[in-house]
Design a protein around this nucleic acid. Structure first.
Lengths: 332, 332
DNA sequence: TTGAAAGCGCTAACAA
DNA sequence: TTGTTAGCGCTTTCAA
């Protein structure tokens, strides 16, 4: 900046004014400064600026996702980026891998970079470690899973209700023996989906005592294996509820291998590409990652802009999309 | 940091030593400082540090992808993150949207944040605008598409050879009337794939003059529409080469709607989840985004560490995965 | 409309 | 082993 100033024959503060589009610079000087910046290929150093600037904003936020390569997460990421780019805010993205230790390390890495806000998917038992940041008005928005031990904005879907809707749908098609394939129980959404499933069965008067529940399926293979075992059991289920997209993929593989795709009904939580092109099409409870991302962006921007209202949890509705696999009737 | 120093009763430089794990601090003092940081919930300000540090490293890089939500891009992103996280480097991720103006703006946003390196997918006709950065030894790695007008590291796949392999495969199954569904021709990889396709047809002695070529399919719907028209034409193709995953999806839809899935052969460029569960399974030319990401990380780290060797283009091989759709024989 | 001086939080260089 | 001073590139404050 010094160099630009001397090349343009002006003071350093004048260059600062031009670079930040501040008023009080004659058009003539402005042009001279701009020419100098081009000649020197100069770009403002935002970090140096934010050191002195009142408010200290860095125009960056930290985004913690289950994984940047998870399609659901990636859609949220994109919606967020679109909304934040309009305000010139850059996004540090990182993957949680459902590991509590990683969560702490990545949050700390964001803090050391003095981000203006944090948008987080979490796995640790408690997020109370963030209380000091919250007290200092660090904008915090939790997505997909609500925080524990701390009161902050959250954007979630109604997991219990979505799971209940899936279950209701299967019951309406004559099923009573419905298997539940769930993710790791340390994941809040997984527990909620199980709760919704069981409550709905209860409402329908199905004794939940011998409902086949397989929790802890965190990947495709675990789910596939679980289905293989269920189908080989004494009393194989006539329908399956898969609580997550990777689990749904594993179920699809197992059913295909057993030749049971058109006999055993299936509803999956979370939509995925090509679900309609499989045979039968896969009935799902669709979440709306784009809406989750847009809402999260809206909330973090409001907090950055000084909104000090009570933290709230926002619920984005789910939607059942019938494509065939969930409409298979029970023969029993 | 001042506060921590006075609370611990030490000089500010001692705190700096502790925070940066520098030697020359007694275990006793170290403990006192760490206690003070915990009490004050202090985290180092890396940006302030890098202002003074020799080399100015910010421990962050800029990553420009076609879109963070594109599955292929997202896999690259993940592989990169894994390799860079080991070195404590954070990633600014952004979406290009195949828009040259966006490219310039996002690169400029990265520069203003003084990233330690740039990993870029580009669309602009020329990347000569980056020559000044390159001259200043800014580490630059291009992925998926080679830069124009500038000599820098690039990680690409052999698009022409991959397309040729797909074409060869179809020819070997008796096809001569193969349609090419290509992406926008301002995208380098799209042009390369078309070249590989045409050259292979030439080698096989097929007159390329009346080969049905449909370029400019940038999304699912354009591809679907193109296939609908091709199937309705006088001389419908017996096989299709889809040059990109969204295009493949559109082709799948069109074939399904026409009831032609088991009659018209299909090979798609780029693998995708569930390709094996469709009926027939979809034969693809698989790229290896994880390897591209890992290689890009390796190169940018080498450049950051001072490697000044001649820029190179690294080619990651593709792989034909036969699943059924590409093995449909021609009846003609 | 312009610029000089101070200082943001940190690390380099050097001194004790 | 520890601390002091200067200064990184910028914005704030204030004066001209």
């Amino acid at each position: 900046m010094k160099h630009v100033a001397s090349l343009a024959g002006v003071g350093i503060k004048t260059v600062s004014r031009v670079m930040n589009d501040e008023p009080g610079v004659s058009e003539d000087t402005r042009q001279r400064v701009l020419r100098a910046t081009e000649q020197l290929n100069y770009e403002l150093d935002m970090a140096a600026g934010s050191l002195r600037r009142t408010g200290r904003a860095t125009a960056s936020i930290g985004l913690l996702l289950p994984s940047v390569s998870n399609p659901f997460s990636a859609e949220i990421h994109r919606a967020l980026e679109d909304a934040l780019a309009e305000r010139g805010i850059a996004v540090f993205a990182a993957s949680l891998d459902d590991d509590a230790e990683r969560e702490r390390k990545l949050v700390s890495a964001f803090m050391r970079r003095r981000v203006d806000g944090l948008i987080l998917t979490t796995i640790a038992r408690s997020q109370a470690y963030l209380a000091p940041e919250l007290a200092r008005n660090m904008p915090l928005v939790f997505i997909d899973r609500e925080p524990m031990g701390i009161d902050a904005d959250a954007i979630v879907v109604d997991n219990a209700e979505g799971a209940a809707a899936a279950t209701r749908h299967l019951i309406a098609h004559g099923h009573r023996n419905i298997a539940f394939l769930g993710d790791r129980t340390d994941i809040q959404t997984a527990r909620e989906r199980r709760r919704g499933f069981l409550e709905e069965l209860g409402r329908a008067g199905v004794a939940t005592v011998d409902v086949p529940i397989r929790s802890g399926c965190h990947d495709e293979n675990a789910a596939r294996q679980a289905v293989v075992e269920l189908l080989a059991s004494d009393n194989p289920p006539t329908a399956i509820f898969a609580s997550q997209n990777l689990v749904t993929f594993g179920v699809l593989r197992a059913l295909r291998e057993a030749g049971a795709s058109k006999r055993v009904a299936l509803v999956g939580f979370d939509d995925f590409p090509l679900a309609d092109l499989l045979d039968p099409g896969v009935t799902v409870i669709a979440q709306h990652p784009d809406r989750i991302g847009a809402l999260a962006a809206e909330r973090i921007l409001a907090r950055i802009d000084g909104d000090r209202s009570e933290p709230r949890t926002y619920i984005v509705p789910t939607e059942l999309i019938a494509r065939g696999s969930g409409e298979i009737h029970s023969n029993q």
